[in-house]
Design a protein around this nucleic acid. Structure first.
Lengths: 347, 347
DNA sequence: AGGCTTGTTGCAAGCGCTTTCAAAGAGGAA
DNA sequence: TTCCTCTTTGAAAGCGCTTGCAACAAGCCT
């Protein structure tokens, strides 16, 4: 078998179309992009030729030559968290209805990669960038901004960065969850944090502390244990909390995964939920609704965040000189069955 | 405020680096790509210059000029199914460890878009393409193949397409699930199908039918109701099954979402699981483990599929002349608590 | 010493497309 | 009829990069 096509088959280019239609490439390009100053008959002939040849635009060339990309980049740490899943669904949908494509880039928490990616992506591949990745240095985002490159930060508010942001009231969520427990009569409330490098984690913790203070309950640092948003750590952290001398009667977990892990630990400890220990999570992932008992949680409007972020970004793409906007969405307490008054009422 | 930078700031190009290092662009290019025949000292000088200038490669230009893309495309119907999530996690991870980036494209089930995308993507943007989308016409995939463009189909085996494929034993899964129920003593077993346009759906159904036949149970078409892999349809379908004159004592759902919907319907009907009705799903999504009762299901090695698909694709990228391979992964029955012998034993 | 490798580097031609800028017709106005 | 304007089209210059080919220096052989 002769291999005659070792060199990748020549693609149909704008030149081929021009030749076939009997016009110059410039005219073809005009037809393909806008419709300024082209005679209708010409336009038709060219479109026809393009169709017959099965012409497909080469995006590289187009954007190299200065055309606009019809893709938007979404920079995310990974696909594993459900959190990203929720956001990207919203992003994906609104992007699609606006005629844009989505390019999802995952960084796997490699800091170096994140930076490299950002440059690369911003360097022509996409028309704009949505960032859900933590730890992106301020300077980078600023550099992008300076280049008039549209960027929207999602739930990564760094108040010092002058950039469009969509985020949620993490602080409020932590506060509400804790207060809910307090109003149920709890006094010893444990808290399992998220990955403390993330703003969302520190904010939730801050909300928790404030709620305690507002209700004249001293913050007991031994009741706060650090987690990482993962189920396993949730288990370990809860275990630590439960085996302490004075165990808490309720636990606030910084996300649902953590809460799920904690619930397992509570069960394994021979304790009942919410009889012995109440627990409340964060996120409202699908599992929260089906776990037994159903998990009370603070719902994050992830999909909505994605949608709004896209809106903001698209605006910015239209007009790069627009002032950055900051939208904050509120969280919502979803009461289910994992919280109850502590045994014996108020301790 | 004067807007002096209305034109996007000039990026650092290979020319700038060349000028700064005192070499030609060709040499810079060589250093940046491989290491063939470049003096070590030169190499260092150039790298240094690039670093100082903050040079970032322009991917468009590179791939336009014939360089290799370091991205792989994943074409998926959408992000909502969990199914895609599982696969893309596997894809993402192995890609990352191979030094490739992932570009995720969603088609939203718009047939037209799928085709347009494929061309566009194959047209230089990526080094290869993974397809999890159904309904991609044979001719398209073949055209890609002919151009030596690396493609791997995931769980979309169309035996008539000469292409690399990673799929799973959907048929076997349907068979096993059904047989499990039969061995428990069930005779009237309902089946809720998936989206029948998909190969996976028809295969699962075929497995179900065959299991019945092999055990001398007549296939009762009234026990088979069409679903679409969504929870809502699962609910409706189960409802239809349960309100029929002779309701089944067990139900096989074509995926876990459907099963979850069905479980809800069963409960709403005042029936118990598995007391009155046994149910078994497909996929083993995270919810299956936490729902009450825990859902027995046929586990799909989604992540592994993703991994293997990447392996196959990377091989093909290395050597486009490679013969297509076909890998089939097996499904696994996960027994949990949603299946039991029918009341009164064998009917 | 002259010729031939071998190792390095530069030149220049594109990749496919967009986008000025100028040219060529077509129609009026003078 | 000639000049001017407006519309439509083409020529050509890149965008930033890779790469085949030529050029050159140094080192080796005969």
């Amino acid at each position: 078998m002769q291999r005659e096509g070792s060199k990748k088959q020549q693609n149909v280019t704008i030149y081929d179309v021009a030749a076939r239609a009997g016009f110059s490439v410039s005219t073809v390009s005009r037809v393909l992009n806008g419709f300024e100053f082209v005679r209708e008959s010409t336009r038709e002939r060219i479109l026809e030729a393009a169709g017959e040849l099965g012409y497909v635009a080469n995006l590289q060339a187009r954007s190299l030559a200065g055309g606009r990309s019809r893709f938007v980049g979404l920079l995310a740490p990974g696909l594993d968290s459900g959190y990203v899943g929720g956001i990207s669904q919203g992003v994906d949908r609104s992007l699609a209805s606006a005629g844009y494509g989505l390019m999802l880039f995952t960084t796997h928490h490699h800091r170096g990669q994140e930076l490299g990616y950002i440059d690369t992506i911003a360097n022509g591949l996409t028309a704009g960038l949505l960032i859900t990745v933590p730890l992106v240095p301020k300077s980078y985002v600023e550099a992008l901004q300076q280049q008039q490159f549209p960027v929207v930060l999602i739930d990564q508010a760094d108040t010092s960065i002058q950039s469009s942001v969509v985020d949620i009231t993490n602080w409020q969520g932590g506060y509400t969850a804790t207060e809910h427990l307090i109003q149920l009569g709890h006094r010893r409330i444990g808290f399992i944090t998220g990955l403390m490098a993330l703003r969302s984690a520190t904010d939730r913790l801050a909300g928790y502390k404030m709620a305690l203070k507002d209700h004249d309950i001293a913050v007991d640092e031994s009741l706060i244990v650090e987690g990482d948003y993962m189920r396993e750590m949730g288990y370990a952290a809860a275990r630590q909390l439960l085996t302490a001398a004075q165990r808490p009667t309720a636990i606030v977990a910084s996300n649902d995964f953590t809460a799920l892990g904690a619930m397992e630990a509570i069960h394994d400890q021979g304790l009942g939920i919410p009889g012995d220990v109440s627990i409340i999570g964060f996120d409202d992932i699908p599992e929260a609704r089906v776990v037994h008992p159903k998990l009370s949680t603070v719902r994050l409007p992830l999909e909505q965040m994605g949608r709004l972020a896209v809106e903001l970004l698209l605006e910015q793409i239209e007009d790069p000189h627009l002032q950055p906007k900051h939208i904050t969405l509120s969280t919502q307490l979803i009461e289910r069955q994992s919280c109850a008054a502590p045994r014996g009422g108020r301790l």
